[in-house]
Simulated scan of single mutants.
Amino acid sequence: MQDSWGRTIEYVRISLTEACNFCCPYCRPTEITPYSQEHLLTPDEWMTILGAFHRLGVRAVRLTGGEPLLYPHLNELLERISVSNWFEDISITTNGSYLASRANELHALGLDRVNISLDSLDEAVFDTCVGKSKQLPSVLAGIRSAIQTGFKQVKINTVLSRYWTDEEVRDVLSYIEQWPVVWRFIEYMPFQGSTFHGPSFDEWLSQLERILGEALQPLKDVYGFGPASYWALPSGKEIGLIFSMSHNYCDSCNRLRLTADGHMRVCLLRDDESDLIDLVRNGITVENLATYIEHVVQGKHKQHKGINMDTPGRPMWRIGG
């Protein structure tokens, strides 16, 4: 499937639930209320929607949230996606806090890759980042479990919602060298207005190179279907940079997003949405749903509005990570 700008759409991210046990300030300021676990899409409904995307040539699916491990039907849905053989890559994005006890079963059910959020390695700072205390040990346990389980790949996602000290940067660089993971740094996006702000692409790259004493080398290798550009450290270890605001990748965008209430967004940073679940619940066929999705995709804009964009109408937790 191609949009009207010639970009091939081959990757879909589906938010299974808005619920999360963390309260990261750049995502949402307060803990989600219990209603977020009500009126969830069923595995049957998700499979109907995913069947349409399969017909359209989508090659990869990522399960997100909220915290996707809180979705009560995760195991059933994951197994059904895997058994369908519709997609060549099945991945998940998680905060990692529940992963230690579930990594093995998720891998056995067909999960290929896992991304884990980790915004600081300092316990006190991490508590501020996630809005709760004493959470870092469970996340680190989840990372270790994911590494040991044997997923095709483990990625660490760090959102730069603030400026880092040189000491913090040196600390994370030491972990990058120790862990067999791909570490990615993600630019803060203004979903909660201008309360938080971190470095731009040029500022972060400059800080890394100053601390390392050498220039980072850009790489052509791509890991998975995501938007990161990859760079080699002097040691040869590779990191990813995702800076949607100051260094956008709109010209190569290959993805769509589905919210936990069954709406499709053709761009993370635009509020254009299409209600897919209403069509499914009214009996649309997979073939007709695919036709509808393909039509909507033709309205995908060439690019978002960049740093001058308005704050999206949906907060991040209602879009999906």
Rank of each mutant, 00 (worst) to 15 (best):
K155D: 07
M316A: 06
G236T: 04
F151T: 11
R281G: 01
Y230E: 06
D202H: 06
I49H: 02
I284Q: 08
V297F: 05
N21M: 07
D122V: 01
L70G: 12
H73I: 10
E167T: 13
Q207N: 08
I186V: 09
A260S: 12
P72Y: 08
G193R: 05
G65K: 07
I14K: 04
L216R: 03
S36G: 13
T291P: 02
R144A: 12
K155Q: 13
Q178W: 10
D275S: 05
F185W: 12
Y188F: 15
S84I: 10
E273V: 03
T64A: 07
E88V: 11
V114W: 00
L173D: 08
I284F: 04
L268G: 04
G321Q: 11
N115R: 00
I277N: 07
T33R: 14
K237M: 15
P199M: 02
T149L: 11
L219A: 07
S82K: 08
P72H: 08
E238R: 11
P312G: 11
L136W: 00
E238C: 05
F201N: 07
R55T: 10
G236F: 07
N308E: 11
L219W: 03
L121M: 14
I81H: 05
T128V: 08
R59V: 04
L233F: 13
L276D: 02
V181R: 02
G236S: 05
F191P: 01
E214W: 01
L276M: 10
R144E: 12
E209N: 03
R257Q: 12
C27N: 09
F225H: 09
I284L: 12
W164E: 06
S138F: 13
Q135Y: 06
P218D: 12
K302D: 11
V130T: 00
I156G: 09
L118D: 11
P29F: 14
V125L: 06
K132N: 07
G198S: 09
Q135E: 15
L212E: 00
E168V: 05
S274L: 06
L256D: 07
E123Y: 02
N282A: 08
R13T: 07
I242R: 06
E287D: 14
E45S: 01
M1F: 04
V159P: 04
H197I: 09
L258A: 13
E168Y: 02
V297W: 03
Q207P: 05
M309C: 06
F53V: 02
L233V: 09
V286K: 01
D166E: 15
I49L: 07
Y188P: 02
C129R: 09
H54I: 01
R113E: 02
D166C: 06
S235T: 11
W46F: 15
V296C: 15
E177Y: 10
M264Y: 05
S138T: 13
D221C: 10
K152C: 13
V286F: 00
S101K: 13
S206Q: 09
V83Q: 15
R184P: 05
A60T: 09
N157W: 14
W204H: 00
L111E: 04
L16K: 12
H73Q: 15
F225T: 03
A215H: 12
L40V: 09
M264G: 01
I147T: 05
H54A: 14
V130Y: 01
F201P: 04
T285V: 03
T17L: 08
D272T: 15
H197T: 08
V286M: 01
H304F: 00
E88S: 14
T93S: 03
P29V: 11
R265M: 10
